[in-house]
């Protein structure tokens, strides 16, 4: 028991720089590898639907616009996204990536959806196709795309 055990520590900090940051005016930068918002590189997407199937939040939706042209639309429902980056891991061609934005709030859930329309790329997977994505793309249709 020591009365005022905390006082020296408190006084030591009285004229020190605060540990907090004046947030909306000064910002800290996230570290490297920060999992921000996913985005698509349409040039490399081969529409294997691995991301759609593995997404735990069912936030990725791939729609075939035209079978003949092989045009697809990939929508990322960022209002549902849990930023786990599983799509980045599942993607065999490195088409899914994460940026480092962290101020992603919006006024409407519609503003959060991001969509890409593109022609399916013909790119050989870099690695021999990763195990979870092994079955044929359309063998496992997504349960529901809600």
């Amino acid at each position: 028991m020591r009365i005022g055990a905390f006082i020296p520590e408190l006084l030591r900090h009285l004229f020190k720089k605060p540990a907090t940051v004046d947030y909306p005016f000064k910002k800290l930068s996230p570290p490297e590898g920060f999992r921000g918002t996913p985005y698509l590189h349409p040039e490399t997407c081969i529409v294997c639907r691995a991301c759609e199937r593995d997404c735990p939040a069912e936030a990725i939706e791939i729609v075939e616009l035209s079978a003949a042209e092989k045009r697809f639309r990939l929508t990322i429902h960022n209002d549902r996204c849990i930023h786990c980056a599983q799509c980045v891991d599942s993607c065999p061609t490195d088409a899914m990536r994460m940026d480092d934005k962290y101020e992603i709030a919006a006024f409407s859930r519609w503003d959060l959806k991001a969509a890409w329309e593109y022609v399916r790329a013909v790119v050989k997977p870099k690695a021999p196709a990763p195990a979870p994505a092994a079955p044929a793309p359309s063998a496992n249709p997504p349960s529901d795309n809600g």
């Binding site: 996230p30 570290p31 490297e32 590898g33 920060f34 999992r35 849990i82 930023h83 786990c84 980056a85 599983q86 891991d89 994460m98």
Partner: peptide
């Protein structure tokens, strides 16, 4: 928290596990 963010890329949900090991 900073260490965790540095290792895993997030402060709260580290999502470092995968079945069969870790992701990063």
């Amino acid at each position: 928290m900073d260490i965790l963010e540095m290792i895993s890329g997030n402060r709260v949900h580290y999502a470092i596990n995968t079945i069969g090991g870790v992701r990063r």
